[in-house]
Amino acid sequence: MKSIQIEDDLYHFIASQTQDIGESASDILRRLVMPESLLNTDNKSVSEKVTPDSTVTNPISNTQSADSICQSAAVFSELEGQQLQAIPKIVERWLLVLSIIHKHNTQQFAKVLGMSGRNRTYFATDKDTLLGTGSSTNPKNVPGSDYWVITNNNTAKKINMLKEVAEQVGFKSAEIQQLIEIFAPEHIE
């Protein structure tokens, strides 16, 4: 096996193309740059599955655009470079994680607008909408986005909201658990 050095932006792009947990950089690059005819049948790309009738299929449907695929790998890659535990205020840490999820899942992030509790709307595209849903919502802008979120919740509620956001944009359950462990390891039971 050979090693190569690549710049950070290229690394983040490659990581954002991950389709399965544990997929190696070699598998991703092979899938992206090597024509099907060059792929060895013993070394199939992780994105391909052999069905019982021995035909090769792609698990991503043709109707699904690349922009609609959850970019959880890119989120985790960017979170690796952050020192989340060095951010003492949970609300600031939470806003940073929401910002990174939004950055890599812009189209899917719109689904959070449907999130609400009994009496409160959790996300909106303007501050006034959230102020209108309660007297102590303390709305803050999700950095780098047009979205606002209520922040006057305890840490347990923020964790639950983060789980729901991750689910809305398409994270798998194992990825959601990993995200929570990164966000607030001191609050994991």
Rank of each mutant, 00 (worst) to 15 (best):
A66L: 04
D67V: 14
D67Y: 13
D67I: 13
S68Q: 14
S68L: 14
S68M: 12
C70I: 05
Q71K: 15
Q71S: 15
Q71H: 14
Q71L: 10
S72Y: 15
S72F: 15
S72P: 04
S72L: 04
S72W: 14
A73N: 15
A74T: 11
F76E: 01
F76N: 01
S77M: 06
S77W: 08
S77P: 10
L79P: 07
L79I: 08
E80V: 10
G81N: 12
G81R: 15
G81W: 06
Q82F: 11
Q82L: 12
Q83C: 07
L84N: 02
Q85Y: 03
Q85V: 07
Q85R: 10
A86M: 13
A86W: 10
I87E: 02
P88E: 10
P88L: 12
K89S: 08
I90M: 11
V91W: 00
E92G: 09
R93M: 07
W94C: 00
W94R: 04
W94P: 04
L95C: 05
L96A: 10
L98P: 02
L98N: 09
H102G: 07
K103E: 06
T106G: 05
Q107L: 14
Q107T: 14
Q108D: 05
F109V: 03
F109N: 04
A110F: 03
A110V: 07
K111W: 00
L113H: 03
M115Y: 06
M115F: 07
S116Q: 14
G117W: 00
R118L: 14
R118S: 12
R120I: 11
T121L: 15
T121F: 09
T121C: 08
T121W: 08
T121K: 15
Y122D: 06
Y122E: 02
A124Y: 03
T125M: 10
D126G: 01
D126R: 09
K127F: 08
D128T: 11
T129C: 04
L130Y: 12
L130E: 06
L131Q: 12
T133L: 03
T133G: 03
S135Y: 09
S136Q: 10
S136P: 02
S136C: 05
N138Q: 13
N138P: 01
N141M: 13
V142M: 00
V142W: 01
P143M: 01
G144S: 06
G144P: 08
D146P: 12
D146V: 10
D146S: 14
Y147W: 08
V149C: 09
V149N: 02
I150V: 15
T151R: 02
T151F: 01
N152T: 05
N152C: 05
N153G: 07
N153F: 15
N153R: 14
N154P: 06
T155I: 13
T155D: 01
A156W: 04
A156Y: 08
K157Q: 13
K157H: 13
K158N: 14
K158L: 12
K158R: 15
K158C: 12
I159K: 03
N160Q: 07
K163E: 09
E164M: 10
A166D: 06
V169K: 00
V169G: 00
G170V: 02
G170A: 00
K172W: 09
S173H: 10
S173I: 10
E175D: 04
E175A: 11
E175L: 09
